[in-house]
Every structure is written in structure tokens, then in C-alpha cells.
């Protein structure tokens, strides 16, 4: 084992020993990180579900073109292809009756049985048209007017002003979420730094001795970084667990209270990769907090 690896083993061992020697400080730091990550996780969860609901409302499909019964699939595809080439259109997709029924079933969430016996043929073939971000606000209305003159078009629904307002609301919500996440993240870093600084202050004599006997900055800082990493990861894991418990308790109540809004789909919790990212973020927070807390003592 080379010297660098041996030093790493000593650093980890001293980090673990430090945690064992001061369990109360560890619990305090971990709880602080857990509370911070709970706040951050709640912001992420609320924003994510708001986005999900908005998607289900169809805000991102400003024009839906319903075609006449018995339309030939080739004719529908040909119109969709033509639409895709129109300036200002980002995409157009043909939705067959079977796919429309499948979406409807999925949208009913826990009650798909409501559509038992319903045949896909009762639903019309449609084309969903999405506009480019750069398109003008009245482009949708102009395009809809043109489409209404097409012989195979039965009806054109433009989300119009409502969609625009919903988009604006969603954009505002997104900005608020990003701002809140940044604010909470900064607050978390400050609180974690303050908490870990207490632990560092309690062990300043040890730091002074390590410097005195020739410990490098990395060797002196290392154990505190290990502690921060463990505290951050455990705190964030605790936060995810609490968030999940809270979601399980509150989520159904919210869904029931706002049944109209959530009729098209149920609320969802963070995915496993998102949970891992949150835990990783907590660990990074712990590392940054401990590095900042120990910095002034490490200076030779």
C-alpha cells in the first residue's frame, strides 16, 4: 500500500473516530442537513408535480386537430407531415383512436374500469401540433383558421389564451422553484457550515497538533470532510424517507381535495434516480460545509 493510500486510510479512520467520540454533534449536524434537504426536496417535489399536472392538462399542446370519422390513416399522416413543415411548428403527431383511448385509460389513474366496454372507434383520429418557442402569440390562431378549411378536419381546438396564461403561470412557478431551491440551498450551506464549525471548534486543539507535527492541509481537513460526507448522505437519506412518508400521508389528501385538477393523473413521488441525486446533493452539502468550516484552522 503506498503512502497516499495509507494516509487516506488514516484520514477515514480518524473521521470515523471523530464521529464516534462526539455522537451528539453528529446527530445535530445530520438533523440540520435532514431539515434542509427536506425543505429542498419539498420544493423539488411540488415543482415537479406542478409541471406534471400542467403536462397532463395539455398546456404544451396548443393546437389539437380533430379529423372527420372514417379518415384514412394515410391522409391523416399526410396532413401531419405537411403541418410539420409549416414555419413556426416544432412538431405534429397523429394520435390514432387506440392511442387516444390508451391515454384516457392512463389518465384515469386508479379508476380505469370506467372505460370498460368503450370501443376506441368512438374517439376521432387527431393531430397534436406543437409550436416552436419562437412562434408569435397569434400564430396558433392563424394556423387554426387555415386548418379549418381542410376537408378532412372536423374541429380545431386552440388552447389559446388559457394555455398562454397557464404557460406563464408555469414559467413563473418554475422561476419561483429555482429561486426557492437556490435560497434554500444557500441557507442549507450556511446552517450546515455553522453546525460543523461548532464541531471543528471543539476539536481545534487536535487540528493545531496535527499542523504542528507536519500534517498537510489535506490530512488535517480530511477527517472533517469524511464526517461532512457521512452526515450529508445520512441527513439527506433521512430527508428522503421523511419526504416519502409525508407524501404518502398528504399526497392522497391533496389529490382528493383537488380532484378536478388531478383527475387526469395522480401525483407522483421522486424517482429513484432523483432520490439518489438528492442524497448526493446532501453529501456534497456536507463536504462543502465541512471544508468551509475547517478552512481557517487548516491555514498554516
Amino acid at each position: 500500500m503506498n503512502r497516499a493510500l495509507t494516509s487516506l486510510v488514516y484520514i477515514i479512520a480518524r473521521g470515523v473516530r471523530g464521529m464516534v467520540q462526539a455522537p451528539l454533534v453528529q446527530v445535530l449536524a445530520m438533523a440540520t442537513i435532514a431539515v434542509c434537504m427536506l425543505l429542498l426536496g419539498t420544493v423539488v417535489l411540488v415543482w415537479q408535480n406542478a409541471q406534471s399536472i400542467a403536462d397532463r392538462w395539455g398546456v404544451d399542446v396548443p393546437i389539437t386537430v380533430y379529423l372527420v370519422d372514417e379518415v384514412e390513416p394515410a391522409a391523416a399522416s399526410e396532413l401531419a407531415s405537411r403541418l410539420a413543415t409549416v414555419a413556426g411548428v416544432s412538431s405534429s403527431e397523429t394520435i390514432a383512436p387506440e392511442l387516444a383511448l390508451q391515454r384516457l385509460v392512463e389518465g384515469l389513474g386508479d379508476d380505469p374500469g370506467l372505460l370498460d366496454g368503450v370501443d376506441a372507434d368512438v374517439l376521432p383520429t387527431s393531430i397534436e401540433v406543437r409550436l416552436a418557442d419562437s412562434s408569435a402569440s397569434d400564430d396558433a390562431a392563424v394556423l387554426a383558421a387555415q386548418l379549418r378549411s381542410e376537408p378532412i378536419v372536423e374541429e380545431v381546438v386552440v388552447a389559446g389564451a388559457w394555455a398562454e396564461r397557464a404557460e406563464q403561470l408555469l414559467a413563473t412557478l418554475r422561476q419561483v422553484a429555482i429561486g426557492a431551491a437556490a435560497l434554500v440551498g444557500f441557507a442549507c450551506l450556511t446552517i450546515v457550515w455553522s453546525t460543523i464549525r461548532l464541531a471543528v471548534y471543539a476539536r481545534r486543539a487536535e487540528i493545531q497538533i496535527l499542523r504542528l507535527v507536519g500534517g498537510t492541509a489535506a490530512f488535517v481537513r480530511g477527517p472533517f470532510v469524511v464526517e461532512g460526507l457521512v452526515q450529508g448522505a445520512l441527513g439527506a437519506t433521512l430527508a428522503v424517507a421523511l419526504l416519502w412518508l409525508g407524501f404518502a400521508e398528504v399526497g392522497s389528501l391533496v389529490a382528493d381535495a383537488f380532484a378536478l385538477a388531478f383527475a387526469a393523473g395522480s401525483l407522483r413521488f421522486l424517482s429513484p434516480p432523483e432520490c439518489i441525486v438528492l442524497v448526493g446533493f446532501g453529501a456534497a452539502l456536507g463536504v462543502l460545509g465541512s471544508r468551509a468550516a475547517v478552512a481557517r484552522y487548516v491555514e498554516a
Binding site: 503512502r3 494516509s7 488514516y10 486543539a205
Partner: peptide, 23 residues
């Protein structure tokens, strides 16, 4: 300037651990 809760051997070992010597 010793670690008061550590044993004499642990205190002395500290000065050798910074050198990265094997246990």
C-alpha cells in the same frame, strides 16, 4: 499540546501517521 483523551502511544502515532507510514 497533547490529545488529552488519547493514550501516549496514540499521541506519538499521530506524528508518524502524517508521514503515511504503514500501521
Amino acid at each position: 499540546k497533547l490529545l488529552s483523551d488519547a493514550t501516549p502511544r496514540e499521541n506519538v502515532a499521530l506524528a508518524l501517521q502524517v508521514l503515511g507510514l504503514p500501521r
